[in-house]
């Protein structure tokens, strides 16, 4: 029983960051129809910035995470303006190739700047785990969970309650009509990509201190973000949130009770299973295959 609670707690902490990654990716796909291969690199970018600000420049830990998010937003906006905007009229495969190119260049840029050796990001939290009844958790992980929950709520508020969110939803539903209604669709695209990128960068800055930061850390995470998006249905934000937590719990319990070595395979098995059984994802009412 203690073990089950411990696994559940670990899964929920991890799930929060997975959800952030999934939301960013699904938003970009849903609104822009872009399969974003740079998502994992934005995650690594955020983690490296956390390292830069905290370990090298000795800035405040919380300020560093906020700065990493801002930088992620800026890099995302830049990618959109330089690479995606000119290719707006091209098909999805062409855009995908450009994103693959950007992914390779970004990842190796990180390697060039930081070298291949993994970095450890210090955190201001006590190293002693908090013991709550039968389970224990590092204070840093609790902070990460709190931060992701706040971000998730904030994001829902943004999408659901603000004029900007309404414009985004309108663009998602019907780009042409939205444009006719006077919505600046091009601006919405840039903003969407930048926001999604910022979420990935925050996820990296939050998870970086828990694990280690290295240049290829984005690869597996980027692929997992795809798994989450597929699980929730492409373009479905609630689906991605639930999908993030589901994937983390599946991994955690799968690793605990089935095989610790196949931990990272569970996500991909989930994708194949979902697509074989219910291609539109588990949380979408209507099919969006195509």
């Amino acid at each position: 029983m203690d073990q089950i609670l411990q696994h559940a707690l670990n899964g929920v902490v991890l799930g929060g960051t997975y959800a952030l990654l999934g939301i960013g990716l699904t938003l970009i796909f849903g609104i822009m129809r872009v399969v974003n291969f740079t998502h994992g690199e934005l995650y690594a970018f955020g983690a490296y910035l956390a390292y830069l600000f905290v370990a090298l420049l000795h800035l405040d830990f919380f300020l560093s995470i906020a700065l990493a998010a801002l930088a992620g937003f800026a890099l995302g906006a830049l990618i959109e303006l330089v690479l995606l905007r000119p290719l707006r009229s091209n098909d999805i495969d062409t855009v995908m190739l450009v994103m693959i190119g950007a992914w390779i260049a970004l990842q190796n840029g990180e390697q060039f700047v930081w070298g291949g050796v993994a970095k450890l990001v210090p955190s201001p939290f006590a190293q002693e785990p908090l013991v709550i009844g039968p389970v224990s958790v590092a204070p840093l992980r609790l902070f990460v969970l709190g931060a992701t929950l706040v971000l998730l709520v904030g994001f829902y508020w943004l999408i659901d309650r603000t004029r900007l969110g309404m414009a985004m939803r309108a663009t998602f539903q019907d780009r042409d009509t939205a444009a006719l209604m006077g919505i600046d669709v091009r601006g919405i695209y840039t903003l969407t990509f930048a926001l999604g990128s910022a979420l990935a960068a925050i996820a990296g800055a939050l998870l970086g201190p828990i694990f280690l930061v290295n240049p290829t850390m984005g690869n597996l995470v980027g692929l997992k973000a795809f798994a989450i998006v597929i699980l929730g249905g492409l373009g479905n934000i609630t689906g991605a949130t639930i999908g993030g937590f589901v994937l983390a719990l599946v991994e955690e319990f799968g690793a605990g009770y089935l095989s610790s070595e196949y931990r990272d395979a569970f996500g991909f098995l989930v994708i194949i299973a979902v697509l074989a059984l219910r291609p539109q994802g588990f949380f979408a009412r209507k099919a969006r295959v195509g």
């Binding site: 696994h7 670990n10 280690l212 850390m217 955690e252 605990g256 931990r263």
Partner: peptide, 11 residues
Amino acid sequence: EATDLSAQLAS
């Protein structure tokens, strides 16, 4: 390349 070793450590 595994980074999350919680399951192994739990066992």
